[in-house]
Nucleic acid binder design. Structure first.
Lengths: 326, 326
DNA sequence: CTGAAAGCGCTTACAG
DNA sequence: CTGAAAGCGCTTACAG
């Protein structure tokens, strides 16, 4: 079926294409009357202007790129889904759509293609890995972008939970219980560095830490190492690590809290229903995505925006903290 | 900075825009020599044609829509991420990008907008919920689409795991153990209906089933109801249900396999590391996404494709099946 | 307030 | 094989 264009509706109404366009965009001078008549007619026919043509005329795409890790690093956590939804919600509200761009390790070729093909007006980065050239590339292209997460560079607009403060807060609840250890994840991830920092601030320089626990076996190894150093409480850097650890505890009949205290720096429905529930930190990732997208849109509109936005957290399952929370 | 166009490179090389275009697309007659010269020059300058302009000229967008549920139904499983990655991989290979479209309950307005604005050439639907008007809408618009999942309508191109066969297979491993019960999820989901069917085929008409266990408490209620009916083995329709159940068992000190056998119709890294590991079904969702996208691309190219593609599954943790697997 | 015309960057018949 | 021209569907100065 032939698609109808503004030319069709113009001739049907006996006006010019220009007037139709003005009715649609609201730009330029046009009488309320003819505008209403045109809009009304379009509504009846359920006409929608072709966005591609608008894009070409305006040199804007009404698309925003959102990065997700490629197949290797995807993981089993729904982080990216949640963030994506937040970004999507805000984008759709403003007439923008989200284009997904996969990033495999340090390979940013997909982003290059999308940017250089002129398919997006801006980008939302999720979870920055230090060392890939993404940020430098986007800056060199002068394309607006916002990061959900943390980057060392202070000139990058970023939105994140305050992991350092949150981890310090939850860790400090256990400092009187005895020695505390930390099972850390991938050391390259910026977010893990922030969590580590919070842990150190509360637990002190001598508290034992094991990095790069990325699967069941390395978690078990880390846990045993910490126990060997006399840890009374074990902090897990995220919910996956914690779940692995809990599954090991259950297998070995190690009791919480009698034999060890467990803490997680990241919540999960799994930890909520564990018995006993594990104290953990909750961040609203969907909200962070929405805020990031909002900042991006405002940047694209030329408004000034704060460089660093830190969203709050919640402390879950205080009841499981010996002595309770403050 | 002024963006460079094919006109720029044409004049720089002393040829016409038409030749440059022919060099890019490979369409039309052009000598190997000038083609190579043009391509070479473009490479050096790292020139990429503006896709938006190509879209308008070709009346193609090189975009594919991928649906995800909006914030209410998102859930804690990474299903959509995984599927999305598969779709993305295949799309990118073929020069297409993925546009994310959220669907909230029965509200398909976002899809309408994207389609009627002419922003996509085709769509990949994930997880169909019977009753929303999505399929009917897309058919009425005549836009090509493929479903990852199952729909009742035989004229829809669909890709899915063979849940019915898989659930029948795993259920039948427990039929001699005694009475089997099933904890079901949302009854409206097509995939759940398929799983139910497989369960029925293996367990028989009299086996007890409880539907709509959607959170910890309803799962516990369902579990107790089945036990009250004398179930020796309990099948969980997915990994979330199963994890909730396991967490209840652990709390109540109910032992596997002494007190009850547990089975899950959907795998998860959580079940893998549970002690003992829970027999479960594994489907490669990323692959399903890739296959769906491939079928869509072929449909758009006018090739005939099979209406229904059923991908295989794996049976995980047979060792936990009493008597082992066949 | 309204229309005719040029332009966004590319493609593709149509003539050479 | 190559170029000049028209066209994809919309927008926006520029004149009325």
């Amino acid at each position: 079926m032939k698609t109808t264009t503004i030319a069709d509706i113009a001739s049907a109404l006996g006006v010019s294409k220009a007037s139709v366009s003005r009715a649609i965009t609201g730009n330029g001078r046009i009488s309320q009357q003819t505008r209403a008549r045109i809009l009304n007619y379009m509504d009846e026919r359920n006409f929608r202007p072709n966005v591609i043509a608008q894009s070409l005329a305006n040199l804007k795409t009404y698309n925003i790129a959102f990065t997700v890790p490629g197949r290797q690093e995807f993981g089993e956590i729904p982080f990216f889904q949640k963030c994506l939804i937040g970004v999507c919600e805000k984008a759709l509200e403003n007439g923008y759509d989200i284009l997904v761009v996969t990033v495999d390790g340090d390979d940013i070729s997909h982003m290059r293609r999308v940017v250089e093909n002129g398919k997006v007006d801006g980008v939302v980065l999720s979870r920055n890995v230090d060392g890939d050239g993404m940020i430098g590339y986007l800056q060199s292209k002068g394309i607006p972008f916002v990061l959900v997460g943390t980057a060392g560079k202070p000139d990058v607009v970023q939105v994140d939970g305050d992991h350092t403060a949150a981890c310090m807060e939850i860790t400090s609840l256990f400092t009187k219980a005895g020695k505390i250890g930390l099972i850390g994840g991938n050391q390259r991830h910026a977010v893990n560095q922030n969590r580590y920092r919070g842990f150190r601030q509360a637990a002190g320089q001598s508290a034992p830490v094991v990095w790069d626990a990325v699967d069941y076996h390395s978690v078990v190894g880390a846990f045993e190492a910490l126990r060997a150093e006399g840890a009374r409480a074990v902090c897990c850097m995220d919910d996956i690590i914690c779940t692995h650890a809990l599954s090991y505890l259950s297998k070995m009949n190690i009791n919480i809290p009698r034999d060890v205290e467990m803490v997680s720096f990241y919540s999960s429905w799994l930890l909520d229903t564990h018995s006993p529930p594990i104290p953990s930190l909750y961040f609203d990732v969907r909200e962070q995505g929405a805020v990031a997208c909002d900042l991006l849109l405002r940047t694209m509109a030329g408004e000034p925006v704060p460089k660093r936005t830190l969203k709050g957290h919640e402390l879950l399952h205080c009841a499981s903290v010996p002595g309770g929370c403050v």
